[in-house]
Design a protein around this nucleic acid. Structure first.
Lengths: 342, 342
DNA sequence: TTGAAAGCGCTAACAC
DNA sequence: GTGTTAGCGCTTTCAA
């Protein structure tokens, strides 16, 4: 008791001289009550500042008015506030604001397949899963439990699943590669993340297509997201070792920290950016903005993506048909790292 | 039913050949059960992947394993993902990560005094209130309901309340002002936010003290946080009008957007920064970093503050005595906007 | 050492 | 129209 302030439906019923059922109906606008009773009950409830306990209500009605947000990349990173990575925190803020506007609360949930399961995690009305990876246990769990969910980026395992929204990664990748070409790059390398998610998989695909179209030999390296800048530096070393004399004219990275590490690694080896090698990154970040030179990057359309996701999720929760997938476009910010004469 | 996956305590009891009470006791380590029974029940529960429904559990035990996070500044701003403001989203990420490490879930809650009350809001175990303002209804509500809470920044109304943590605003303000003085500033103006919170109130106090110590006439202006950059531009106009011939050598702002607007306004009026006027801001942000010149700013120690708050909150929830308040120190980043010869 | 039973606060059938 | 009643899944006396 008392958790919701002491005053329960029983108190209101007593005071209004009706049954608790009448109170419930009056307040929820259900059942068949006379207008008079309904009004009187409402008045009494207001006066007593009665608030239905959402726990108890949820227990009955299987709906608590809250959704969960799982950021798979952070689960894998093992750090929910990584330095210099504001992509996720922005996304969280945007999603929260959009959800609140719809009367939904948002709960940040860490990998809910790990024990102990975060409290309330399985009681939420729905989920947004950011970047599910191949064979993702979180998606499997939600699926098995029948909890509605939508994803950021398609589920790599289920081409038929349409409840997802995402930045248009293919468009961004092409834009970056064209930008390189336009700035005189003949060969372009790619440093993708290690995570088996749509973001990494699809952008690599786009890159390979683009190379094929131009008869360029692709060079794809992979850096672990968890390694952060160090991962980028390792990629630089591998690149230098592999392509010794014939370094690519440009490198496209997927994460800000890799890009920053790559920049540092190449610079340390005596190369000049952008004169010798250009660098661009698929998602803007502190690292991209603060490197010297600043790294050309895409600013994600977080607000639009969040709104799309909530539209999709609410449709799912209400049993309406899916209108997904929904693609949003990132804004391109050319910076010093690609500043060459066209 | 089914909300937690279909398998209930009843199923486990049946399968283990015991009563549901025995299952509850076995799993919670309560009551007096034989070691054998306890073990057997646990085994069965594991095998069935049984998970207690935290809603139902909360209904009985008044504890759901989740805390709420209310960001008052965002409530007032009316926008939960304002552009160029990453202070809050960072804070949310940091708090969530720290909470998860302690087995707590975090729910982001908008102003819970507004109707309709966000679901679950009143059922949470405790709250972190970011920057309560004078006469804050959220604090009053939590107080009245007896829900444990801690605040970021002291509650301006209750000097005796010790369950708070914060950046050391006084130290930062002094540091900025000294930095100005060291760079040759004889007069310094202040542009504070309009919010009646500890952040604004205390920093103004520090500023006035600092001025008094040096016999400098204080100039304090106030810009509404909701106005963003435009608010800073208005402050610039007022400053130009008020101090016509004798402009201050430097201005200290409290928010990144005000600082950026101020910079834009002064520049538009033909003034040069930092040559004519220096600018610094109390909290780092996109605007501070991206302005030209970049604006000298303090990078808040988000992680440390979050950790401190959770320590305090857990103490409160467990009924342990308070060890607050706890102050953390922001890191100073001198940038172009104060780049004058010392 | 165990089980039966009484609720937590609420909603939704079903009687009246 | 309105009230009675049976639970939702769980914890916790209290008797056995």
């Amino acid at each position: 008791m008392a958790r919701s302030g002491g005053v329960t439906i029983r108190d209101v019923a007593r005071r209004a001289g009706v049954s608790i059922a009448a109170v419930s109906m009056a307040l929820n606008g259900t059942g068949t009550l006379s207008v008079a009773t309904r009004a009187r009950v409402r008045a009494v409830a207001d006066e007593m500042e009665y608030q239905a306990d959402s726990l108890a209500r949820g227990l009955r009605s299987s709906s608590v008015g809250a959704i969960g947000l799982v950021i798979r990349s952070l689960d894998l990173l093992g750090d929910y506030a990584p330095e210099g990575v504001d992509v996720f925190t922005r996304f969280i803020g945007a999603t929260t604001s959009q959800a609140m506007a719809r009367g939904l609360s948002v709960m940040l949930v860490p990998d809910l397949t790990k024990r102990p399961t975060p409290p309330l995690a399985l009681g939420l009305d729905g989920y947004i899963v950011d970047l599910p990876h191949v064979d993702d246990p979180v998606v499997r769990l939600l699926e098995r439990r029948g909890i509605p969910y939508v994803t950021v980026g398609r589920d790599p395992d289920r081409p038929d699943f349409t409840d997802w929204a995402s930045e248009d990664g293919a468009a961004a990748t092409r834009r970056a590669l064209d930008h390189f070409a336009h700035r005189g790059a003949g060969s372009v390398a790619l440093v993708r993340g290690a995570g088996r998610n749509a973001w990494n998989i699809d952008a690599e695909l786009t890159y390979r297509e683009w190379c094929a179209e131009r008869g360029i030999a692709p060079y794809v390296d992979e850096a672990d997201e968890r390694d952060g800048e160090a991962g980028g530096r390792l990629a630089a070393e591998r690149l230098l070792a592999a392509k010794a004399g014939r370094l690519p004219d440009a490198v496209f990275c997927f994460t800000g920290r890799h890009a920053a590490g790559l920049l540092a690694g190449l610079t340390a080896a005596g190369l000049r950016v952008p004169a010798d090698v250009m660098i661009a990154v698929a998602s803007d970040s502190e690292h991209a903005r603060h490197s010297r030179p600043a790294i050309t990057a895409f600013e994600l359309s977080t607000q639009a993506t969040s709104a799309a996701l909530l539209d999709l999720l609410q449709a799912r929760m209400d049993g309406r048909p899916s209108t997904g997938p929904i693609l949003t476009s990132a804004r391109f910010h050319p910076r010093g790292s690609t500043k060459r004469r066209a």
